[in-house]
Design a protein around this nucleic acid. Structure first.
Length: 104
DNA sequence: ATCCTGACGCTAT
DNA sequence: AATAGCGCCAGGA
């Protein structure tokens, strides 16, 4: 039986909603967290969920593990970072040690 | 089954 | 910093 994508998508979105203003988390971190909750999927699957259903949550607070942004995030995300005071490193890159929020 | 394509991650160059 | 290769998970043709 196929895995419950509906439940997984809900879990991902619920988690993204908990990322505080000015902080970010990663696709991989979300995947690992949910794996711990008994929903074993990979980072790519999280990215897929965001691509399809991320519209209703703070999608700009989810970045790659190295702090770089998926091209799809665009300038919209950068504007949001300046607005929320997200720690940045250079242009269009997040200062991970400072901004990383561990899913909990 | 096979091939291609992603809002990924890691290592090597 | 940028690029390339490979592993990975899912979905579509």
């Amino acid at each position: 039986m196929p895995w419950d994508q509906e439940a997984y998508a809900e879990a991902v979105l619920a988690l993204v909603e908990r990322v505080p203003r000015g902080r970010v988390t990663t696709y991989g971190a979300i995947a690992e967290h949910l794996t711990g909750l008994g929903l074993p999927r990979g980072p790519r699957t999280v990215g897929r969920v965001m691509s399809l259903h991320g519209g209703g949550v703070p999608w700009w607070r989810v970045v790659r593990a190295d702090g770089s942004l998926p091209p799809s995030h665009g300038d919209e995300a950068r504007a949001a970072y300046l607005e929320e005071g997200t720690p940045l490193r250079g242009t269009g890159r997040v200062d991970m040690p400072a901004a990383y929020w561990q899913p909990r």
